[in-house]
Design a protein around this nucleic acid. Structure first.
Length: 802
RNA sequence: GCUUGUAUGGUGGAAUUGGUAGACACGAUGGACUCAAAAUCCAUUGGUAGCGAUACUGUGUCGGUUCGAGUCCGACUACAAGCACCA
């Protein structure tokens, strides 16, 4: 059989008939299946893509057959550093590179038979699309959600660009793996931290996989505690944040961040200016990574000349500088209780500071008695004036109450998640539509002038000094201020590639609207993404950004709901046959094109679904692939066994399989869906009088979501019915699944000794009798007294004998 | 260190959610077909003993609950991923 021509034939058929076109406002119930759109790299589609696309395609095809109006779109996430680097390396304009790569990707996807609605295709780099990305940025700006600020940022010395915290996780550049440095730069920011609580709460309105939810909760990093004002001797004050207010009497010093604002304010009063300044300089040089690695000894120095006043005891307390305190978390200052916090303990040891134990229950000579430990036991306070003798929980409450009543403390929440750094010093991104006027400051572009197009230039390599390549293009940079018409300059930074992907799933609902970013009624009709598949690595990035973006839109009346993604699942990776991640250098890369050419698209699709648990990583095995090819060949061959009868030869088997496949496809159990169809085929092969037309069609339709070409072909060839793509998914009858005769196990003291045939729901007494009559059972209870017989209907008999 | 996973034959992996462990597939071995090979088909295939019926043993380790545990509980071990001085 010629797979190539069959596949082409059906791909053309589907396209001509337009069976995969999603229809806005159709009366059928809408269902939106989405798979993360790829970044069209130069290396083409990866077998890993095939895994998740096939899975989503199967769901889309299933839902269509079940009567839904399915939206299953595809597009391109083509802005960003990799595209730019590819272009630089190959000496072509990124625009051309994207065009070329998209063509490859699209050709590959078509050959695999994915049922995408190509009429909604777009790339984030299309001016028609990024016009609306820019437009949305302006809405955010106008609502006060975008601002420009000079802050220490993550700087990649290799890419020569600023990175977001999400992109620099672990102190390493996400793109090139270089160590990230800290650099002060003026950046556009989005106030994502304002949405920390909403992003947490919103998770309740979604059906994300549990590990995805946890990943986001972790990243947002909420902690509840007390913000407390601390007076300084001789005037002034600062605030600290703590989650352990119960240890307040244990404070023996305060530590403030060297990169924070507080030390700058206090500087005039500092006596040891030289030492303090030197330490600040030392810290700013270190990257975050160095700070964690090199600082186990707890560096820092005393700030001489400034003392704090303990808010309850009134005692004078020294203030230190220490880079374990971060300038951009909490208040940039902490109360240090060395007896009850290991970090404080180490710092106190290193700097010879006294310690006061305030919670009883463990010796604090060598280690701090930390919160985790004292919360596990019932502990009482000591050395804490009127709070002495209270339990930790009681003291926490009472101390907070006292401080709040005195007006020097507030209960607050803090979040690890920071604002989103929205600038990149790159050519290949959406230009930020802001203009800097010497008179008016930052002025947004007039919306009607959008899109602000990228200039068509030959040079787009990053500059040495960390400015965007756009900065060099003066004719583009120079412009008129929209407010005062005076000379002004454009923002030369561009948006991060996460911008375009933060709302692409909305655009698919109305992909070619020239007047709005997406029509509200269309968003209301589709309601959002029902089933979204993507990588775990996007949990704390794309998925979080996308939710933030939608929540902003919703708050500004631009989206119908605050959560537009319902189910989120993620797939495991496909590793090379040596169990390692596929990479050119390891020579273990499998190109899907080769597999399609040699084995056919259906075989590849079946194999990738059969390879194992969808959510786990799986190693490529060409041997197993051959097994799937055999399966497909046997499906063709069994056509020879067609008889002229109707109905299912084995009703129970048929209904069982329908149930199994229907359920497995929507619970990420694609592997067992395939295996149950293999079982079905094995049974068909054993039927003595051949298989009926209904038998054959059942097998084909159930396999169709996974192997769409060959099933359509055989269905047509044997005139079994209308094309599968426009057919209705079979339903099962629960009553027909239970067999009349059931083989059940007989155990003696929990060990299997025999199996017996019973009728469905046979009387307990009768089952017991049958069990006791088994030769092997008799043998095993010889000389024993039967104490109890447990009968689980239609399942098992267990004879307890002593 | 913290969080989250994972651990089942030679291999990928199943197990109705506490009820016949190893479905399905790969590989291997033997056989049929063939001059031969490939392909295909048939049989066997967790381990040990036995011609066999069968017995013992077996789901990372140790313990517990239960008539019954891969599944539940407790304590560990190993590996993987993510986060990491977040007060």
């Amino acid at each position: 059989m010629n797979y190539k021509s069959i596949e082409k034939k059906w791909q053309d058929f589907w396209e001509e008939k337009g069976v995969f076109k999603a229809i806005d406002f159709d009366s059928k119930p809408p269902y939106y299946v989405l798979v993360e759109f790829p970044y069209p790299s130069g290396t083409g589609l990866h077998v890993g893509h095939v895994r998740s696309y096939t899975a989503q395609d199967a769901i889309a095809r299933l839902k269509r057959m079940q009567g839904y109006n399915v939206l299953f779109p595809m597009g391109w996430d083509a802005f960003g550093a990799p595209a730019e680097r590819y272009a630089i390396r190959n000496h072509i304009h990124p625009k051309e590179a994207v065009k070329e790569n998209v063509k490859t990707f699209k050709g590959q996807m078509k050959k695999l038979g994915f049922s995408f609605d190509w009429s909604r295709e777009f790339s984030t780099t299309d001016p028609d699309y990024y016009k609306w990305t820019q437009w949305q940025f302006l809405q955010f700006y106008k609502q006060g959600m975008a601002y420009k600020d000079t802050i220490p940022v993550n700087w990649c010395p290799v890419c020569k660009s600023v990175l977001s915290n999400e992109d620099a996780a672990g102190g390493v550049c996400e793109q090139c793996g270089a160590r990230v440095e800290q650099k002060e730069k003026s950046q556009w920011m989005l106030r994502m931290s304002d949405y920390a609580e909403d992003l947490l709460k919103g998770l309740d309105d979604t059906h994300f996989a549990e590990k995805v939810k946890l990943g986001q909760i972790n990243w947002i990093g909420k902690s509840s505690g007390v913000e407390l004002d601390i007076e300084i001797v001789g005037g002034g004050k600062f605030s600290i944040f703590t989650t352990c207010i119960e240890t307040i009497y244990g404070i023996t010093f305060f530590v403030i961040a060297p990169d924070g604002k507080l030390i700058k304010e206090l500087m005039p009063r500092v006596l040891n200016k030289e030492e303090v300044k030197a330490y600040i300089a030392e810290t700013t040089k270190k990257s975050n990574m160095d700070r964690t690695e090199l600082n186990k000894g707890k560096t820092g120095c005393l700030v001489e000349g400034i003392k704090a006043i303990h808010p309850l005891t009134g005692k004078e307390v020294p203030i230190y500088l220490g880079d374990f305190v971060l300038g951009d978390y909490g208040t940039g200052a902490v109360m240090a209780v060395p007896s009850h916090d290991e970090r404080d303990f180490e710092y106190a040891k290193a700097h010879n500071i006294e310690m006061i134990q305030v919670i009883d229950g463990q010796d604090t000579k060598d280690h701090a008695f930390e919160k985790k430990e004292y919360m596990a036991k019932e502990c009482y306070l000591i050395n804490s004036e009127e709070f002495t003798g209270m339990t930790v929980l009681e003291a926490k409450e009472k101390i907070t109450e006292k401080l709040v009543n005195e007006g020097i403390a507030r209960t607050v929440n803090n979040y690890k998640m920071r604002d989103w750094i929205f600038s990149r010093q790159r050519f290949w991104g959406e230009p930020i539509p802001m203009i800097n006027c010497s008179k008016c400051g930052w002025v947004p572009m007039d919306e009607k002038d959008l899109p602000l197009l990228l200039p068509d230039v030959a040079e787009y390599e990053p500059t040495e000094d960390g400015e965007s390549p756009l900065a060099k293009i003066t004719e583009w940079v120079n412009c008129k201020c929209p407010k005062c018409s005076g000379d002004a300059k454009r923002e030369t930074d561009t948006m991060p590639n996460w911008a375009g992907s933060s709302w692409y799933f909305l655009r698919y609902m109305d992909a070619h609207n020239e007047n709005e970013f997406v029509n509200m009624d269309k968003m209301k009709y589709w309601g959002g993404v029902n089933w979204y598949n993507g990588g775990m690595e996007h949990t704390a990035r794309h998925l979080l950004y996308a939710r933030f973006w939608v929540q902003m839109l919703h708050n500004f009346g631009l989206a119908p709901k605050s959560e537009m993604i319902d189910i989120r699942v993620s797939h495991g990776m496909i590793l090379g046959d040596n169990n390692e991640k596929m990479s050119k250098s390891k020579g273990n890369v499998i190109n899907p094109d080769d597999i399609v050419r040699e084995y056919g698209a259906d075989t590849l699709r079946v194999y990738e679904m059969f390879i194992g648990d969808y959510q786990q990583d799986a190693s490529w095995s060409t041997d197993s692939l051959k097994g799937c090819k055999r399966f497909i060949e046997r499906i063709q061959k069994i056509g020879d066994k067609l008889n002229d009868q109707n109905g299912y030869t084995n009703e129970v088997l048929a209904h069982k399989t329908i149930k199994k496949v229907s359920n497995d496809l929507v619970s990420l159990k694609y592997n067992t869906a395939v295996s149950s169809l293999m079982i079905l085929l094995n049974e068909y092969e054993d039927f003595e009088n051949g298989i009926t037309r209904d038998d054959y069609r059942l097998l084909l339709i159930l396999l169709n979501p996974i192997a769409p070409h060959i099933t359509e072909e055989l269905n047509e060839q044997y005139h079994l019915g209308e094309p599968l793509c426009t057919s209705t998914w079979p339903e099962y009858d629960e009553n027909k699944i239970i067999e009349d005769n059931i083989t059940i196990a007989v155990q003696v003291n929990g060990k299997l000794r025999a199996t017996i045939e019973t009728e469905k729901d046979e009387a307990e007494e009768q089952v017991k009798e049958k069990a006791l009559n088994e030769e092997n059972v008799k043998k095993n209870i010889e000389n024993l007294k039967v104490v109890k017989i447990i009968v689980v209907p239609n399942r098992i008999v267990n004879i307890v004998a002593k």
